[in-house]
């Protein structure tokens, strides 16, 4: 198949970017979207042009490194799918495909389609952990966790940190990402000691990173590759309210 591509090219963080048009022949329908970009890049290099920089690594939908906005949708037309898992069979011959980086105030563009998602690391760093040092852990089965609780915690923990939730949110809110971690740890007995501080700190960091407010449009859940539920956000709200208003502090 033949494709017309319009791709965002931006030299570095400070430069202005623009959409550049490319034509690509001989695209195989079984190619993954990133393999299509590989093909384009090989064509560009052969013509001595600079290839398009895009994020990718594991190419099996788990590392969370890839992610672009395809025709105005984060990770492209398939729901709950990362860009690397998207295949060209989802597109038509002679289609024009518009490819832009994830955009949000919290995700500055580094180059072309690569964005800086360091904010996510800083949110986790602010409290998204259990403060247990190596060697402190008790025997694992002394902390029973019910099957349903463990499964629910897993559902939240499944987040791959790709940032599609932020890119797809009209408010550029990182509530889904932040809440998934808060919820996972709030559910587990071994992480409950720190739940109040954790919620307060992580939300404070989230705000510091220039992410917007969650207005519960629920778009994030639809585009999330792992289908993380928006109820995590409600749970985060609960944890925040509990920590702020219900707990008596000394």
């Amino acid at each position: 198949m033949k494709l017309y591509l319009k791709i965002w090219r931006q030299k570095d963080r400070v430069s202005e970017g623009k959409l550049v048009e490319y034509t690509l022949d001989n695209v195989n329908t079984h190619m993954s979207f990133l393999e299509m970009l590989d093909t384009l890049n090989n064509q560009l290099i052969t013509n001595n042009e600079e290839p398009v920089e895009f994020d990718h690594d594991c190419r099996e939908g788990i590392c969370g490194q890839c992610g672009v906005v395809i025709n105005g949708i984060a990770h492209g037309p398939l729901k709950n799918t990362t860009t690397c898992q998207l295949h060209m069979r989802e597109f038509k011959d002679n289609e024009t495909i518009l490819i832009e980086p994830f955009r949000a105030a919290g995700f500055p563009v580094k180059k072309d389609l690569k964005v800086d998602r360091g904010a996510f690391d800083r949110i986790i760093s602010s409290g998204g952990y259990v403060s247990v040092n190596t060697g402190q852990a008790p025997e694992a089965n002394t902390i029973p966790v019910g099957h349903e609780t463990a499964e629910a915690a897993f559902d939240s923990a499944a987040c791959i940190g790709c940032g599609a939730c932020v890119a797809t949110c009209k408010n550029g809110s990182a509530a889904l990402f932040t809440s998934a971690k808060i919820t996972q740890l709030a559910l587990l007995p071994q992480a409950k000691e720190e739940r109040d501080q954790r919620a307060l700190k992580m939300i404070a960091q989230m705000d510091k990173e220039q992410f917007g407010h969650c207005s519960n449009t629920e778009a994030c859940e639809v585009e999330c590759p792992q289908g993380i539920s928006v109820l995590n956000i409600a749970r985060m709200n609960y944890e925040y309210n509990r920590a702020s208003f219900l707990k008596f502090k000394k």
């Binding site: 906005v69 984060a74 949000a104 009209k170 550029g172 917007g212």
Partner: peptide, 17 residues
């Protein structure tokens, strides 16, 4: 929110909400 959110030249994000 307007400042925090991204703006795209083609925006089809509306399909999911």
């Amino acid at each position: 929110n307007r400042k925090a959110g991204g703006h795209y030249s083609t925006d089809n994000r509306g399909r999911s909400s």
